[in-house]
């Protein structure tokens, strides 16, 4: 059976003892489709990503199902998962300074992946690695292969991480804030590389970031997470032009755009008042209620995602005022 999706998450729950950090989320990423995942710090984005990869630290439990390449990743053995990780799905992490093995040469770290998954010989693996590094706009790839991570800059290391993630033509790439730790100028270059590579290879992409413009530029769809749940999801055009959830609206209003920055350097950014409730004090109803201007009594009950094409989980969603572009 040939699946047309790269990832199908069904009612994923991630918890540590009594603390439930991800509270039942579902979404499907088709092959070649790019999804942005946004939400404030603590929303559960990284845990979602790690749960999908099967890389949660010991002690975390999951329930639900995550389908990829014909298996449920949540119940597969570590050995089985290791045949998929780096091969059909890979992940780029936030901090490239700590993400590479400090005592192994960069070249060996890349060639290992190719030899392990693609069963190519040493010579072939080296050639493919050099080609990958070239593609990542890394000058003098031979000397990079021969370097240890500490000899390279953060930007170089993150390009290497992306090269490693792409090495075996995966169907799915998860990038968790891949540029947050980099200089602003380097951020753009790295994102452009990721963008091109994903397009060329037709992979599914799950891009986690705080940077809404980046998601708008790179993805087709977006899911907004709050308090461990997806509160709004739809196409970029829909969600960014007409946010229906008060939280999404607040999030968009807190980003600088041409409309709310004036030339004197002053801004009229409105930040959302209050903060995310801690895990141990998550309300039973809508998690956003305390900070919401639209809250009513009904909001003490938990709103579910509705059935529109632009889905929202809110009792008093904002009306759609204009058609998305």
């Amino acid at each position: 059976m040939m699946e047309d999706f790269a990832l199908k998450v069904e009612n994923l729950v991630v918890s540590l003892g009594d603390l439930v950090a991800v509270r039942g989320i579902s979404f499907v990423i088709k092959k070649g489709e790019r999804w942005g995942l946004v939400g404030e710090s603590g929303a559960g984005k990284s845990l979602t990503a790690l749960a999908i990869m099967g890389l949660l630290q010991d002690g975390w439990d999951t329930s639900g199902a995550v389908w990829h390449d014909g298996i449920n990743l949540l119940t597969a053995s570590d050995k089985k998962l290791s045949t998929r990780r780096g091969r059909t799905m890979s992940m780029v992490f936030q901090d490239p300074t700590t993400a590479l093995n400090p005592v192994a040469k960069v070249g060996n770290q890349i060639t290992w992946i190719l030899r392990h998954h693609m069963h190519v010989n040493e010579k072939e693996a080296i050639e493919q690695s050099l080609a990958l590094l070239n593609k990542m706009n890394l000058p003098r790839p031979e000397s990079i292969m021969d370097s240890y991570p500490h000899q390279l800059s953060g930007g170089q290391r993150q390009r290497i991480m992306i090269a490693m993630a792409l090495a075996c033509y995966p169907e799915l790439i998860i990038a968790d804030e891949p540029t947050t730790a980099l200089d602003v100028t380097v951020q753009k270059q790295v994102l452009r590389l990721l963008d091109t590579a994903v397009t060329e290879r037709n992979c599914g992409l799950l891009l986690i970031t705080h940077d809404l413009p980046v998601i708008a530029a790179m993805c087709e769809n977006v899911a907004v997470m709050y308090g461990g749940r997806i509160v709004e999801t739809g196409s970029i055009a829909e969600v960014f032009t007409n946010p229906r959830h008060p939280y999404t609206k607040g999030l968009l209003a807190s980003q600088p755009t041409l409309d709310n920055i004036d030339l004197e350097g002053g801004t009229r950014l409105t930040s959302i008042r209050g903060s995310v409730p801690p895990l141990y004090a998550m309300p039973d109803g809508c998690a956003f209620a305390e900070r919401c201007d639209f809250a009513t009594d009904k909001c003490k009950e938990l709103p579910e995602l509705d059935d529109q094409s632009q889905r929202v989980a809110c009792w008093n969603p904002i009306a759609i005022t204009q058609k998305g572009a």
Partner: peptide, 22 residues
């Protein structure tokens, strides 16, 4: 618990192989 062991596992090393190799 280091990040680079997580990377190694994300690249396809099983827990056991990551322990031995990294």
């Amino acid at each position: 618990n280091e990040d680079f062991v997580r990377t190694a596992r994300a690249s396809g090393m099983s827990r056991r192989v990551a322990l031995i190799k990294v």
